[in-house]
């Protein structure tokens, strides 16, 4: 199982002080956390790239974490920010189908993860926007294929992606 919130917060505190050993452990744990966090919300072939992007962002912006506050909500905000950014840039990929990675979930952190999750963001945009983003930006379908799959016109798919992404980027810090 991945390290819990107090352990991660403690590792991050030590990392901010320059402890390289603690930082190596932290980044290793964060990498695992991110792989689980993004699972099924990004095409498998792009998962590594996105995780690396977030690790680089964490490194660059590590001074923006306030040690008096929880670590995971900070990490999730950065992960969501990079994820939305990633969706904006995502074009059609060869890998259209998503693999199902439903491994056993760790129960202890479920409530926290649920509150921070990407699903919590997606339910805040309209079902048609979420569907268009999911099909084109995550699964890699073309606009035409997504149009045929959903029954939405091609321009409606484009508009739903554009508006949905715009709304998602405004919701990055939302928890409820």
């Amino acid at each position: 199982m991945i390290a819990d919130e107090p352990t991660l917060a403690n590792l991050m505190r030590l990392s901010q002080q320059g402890d390289r050993q603690a930082y190596t452990v932290l980044l290793t744990e964060v990498k695992l956390w991110l792989e689980r966090y993004f699972r099924r919300r990004v095409a498998p072939a792009q998962l590594d790239d996105l995780v690396q992007e977030v690790l680089l962002a964490l490194h660059r912006k590590r001074a923006s974490w306030d040690p008096s506050r929880a670590f995971l909500p900070w990490l999730a905000a950065i992960a969501r920010y990079r994820w939305v950014d990633h969706l904006r840039k995502a074009y059609r990929r060869e890998e259209a189908a998503l693999e199902d990675h439903d491994a056993a979930e760790d129960s202890g952190e479920e409530a926290v993860l649920a509150r921070l999750s990407l699903d919590r963001l997606l339910v805040r945009i309209s079902a048609r926007q979420a569907e268009a983003i999911e099909l084109v930006k995550v699964e890699g379908l073309s606009i035409r294929e997504a149009s045929a799959r959903t029954g939405q016109s091609e321009s409606a798919v484009k508009v739903n992606i554009h508006r949905g992404l715009k709304k998602l980027s405004a919701l990055v810090e939302k928890a409820e």
Partner: peptide, 27 residues
């Protein structure tokens, strides 16, 4: 806690570059 035995090159690089940072308070 899970520990990867295979070192990740990116993680190794970032840890190698680590310097202490000052955390600016909101106030």
């Amino acid at each position: 806690m899970t520990m990867n035995t295979t070192p990740d090159p990116l993680i190794e690089r970032l840890a190698g570059e680590l310097e202490p940072v000052r955390v600016p308070a909101r106030r």
